[in-house]
Computed example of a mutant assay.
Amino acid sequence: MPYVLPVLLLAAATALILSAMYRSWRRRARGVVVTDLPALPAGSPAAPADPPVEGVYVSTTIAGRPWERVLAQGLGARSAVDIQVLPARAGLPGGVLLTRRGARDVFIPAGTIHDVHRASGMIGKVVDTDGLVVITWQVGETLLDTGLRTRYGADRARLHDRIHSLLVATGENANPEG
């Protein structure tokens, strides 16, 4: 019986800490203003010339701040992903389609992409030199960085180049060396 009071105090402290963590997580989800994400255009796009690239959706952060994860709209959920780069065709805008397993799919229209580069890490993942492909894009007034890790190292340069070709097609000035 002499341990009842310490056990109750420890349980109360644990409950208090978990409650504070949950409130903080919810506040962060509301803190970054991300309006509705762009929807995949009506009508199914033609199959891309290249097959999807398998990988991991690492996270989305505020552009330039790789340690500040965006939680709104499900963008903070790490998941397996199939990445398709869709060129503009027959009135359908081009873009990058991220088909995520266990999380909401994300479509990044080509016109919202500001840059594509490679990085060594962002929140939730630190990898070898230039192991992530990072897409800088805009939703509403907010610039975001979305990090992708390809399953196979040989796919990284090819994915970067395909996304960069969308920037060239839309007239954006992106970092060609990545």
Rank of each mutant, 00 (worst) to 15 (best):
G140C: 04
V106I: 12
G140E: 04
D155A: 02
F107E: 04
I135P: 01
G111I: 10
G121Y: 10
V116H: 07
R162H: 08
G153L: 11
I113M: 07
R158M: 08
H117F: 15
V133C: 10
I113D: 13
L143H: 02
G124Y: 11
I123Q: 01
L159D: 06
L159C: 03
V134A: 00
R101Q: 13
T142C: 10
H114R: 15
L144N: 04
I113L: 14
R101D: 06
D145K: 01
A157C: 08
A157W: 01
D161P: 09
R158T: 12
T142P: 10
A157K: 12
R156G: 00
I123A: 10
L144H: 05
E141H: 13
R158C: 11
G153C: 05
V106T: 09
L143Q: 13
T150K: 09
I123G: 06
G121M: 03
G121P: 03
R151A: 15
D128L: 12
L143R: 10
G102N: 14
D115W: 02
T146Q: 02
P109R: 07
A103G: 08
V106D: 03
D128E: 15
G131H: 12
A110C: 12
A103N: 09
R158V: 03
K125Q: 04
D115A: 11
R104P: 05
H117G: 12
I113S: 06
D130V: 11
L159M: 04
L159A: 01
I163Y: 02
R158P: 00
V127Q: 01
H114A: 15
I123W: 03
L143K: 02
V106M: 00
R156D: 07
D130Y: 02
R162I: 04
T142Y: 00
R149T: 09
H114F: 08
I108R: 02
R118D: 08
R101W: 06
R162S: 14
H114D: 09
P109C: 14
V134M: 01
P109E: 05
H160C: 03
L159F: 12
V133P: 10
I123E: 02
G131W: 05
I113G: 06
R118N: 05
R158D: 15
A119G: 01
A119L: 06
Y152K: 11
D161F: 03
R118P: 07
H160V: 05
G111D: 15
T146Y: 04
T146I: 00
V116F: 07
T129P: 07
G111V: 10
A154R: 13
D145V: 05
V139F: 03
V133T: 12
L159K: 00
G153A: 14
L143G: 07
I163A: 05
D130W: 01
T112Q: 10
V134D: 06
A157Q: 12
R149M: 11
R162Q: 15
Y152I: 07
V127R: 09
D115E: 09
V127Y: 05
D145W: 04
W137T: 06
D115F: 01
H114N: 13
P109S: 00
Y152Q: 13
A110E: 10
H160L: 15
A110G: 09
I108G: 03
G153S: 08
R162D: 15
V133F: 09
G121D: 01
H114V: 14
D105C: 00
I123R: 11
T146W: 00
D115R: 09
K125W: 02
G102D: 00
M122E: 14
T150R: 04
R101H: 14
T150S: 00
A110Q: 01
T150W: 02
V134G: 01
G147M: 08
T142V: 14
D161R: 15
V116K: 01
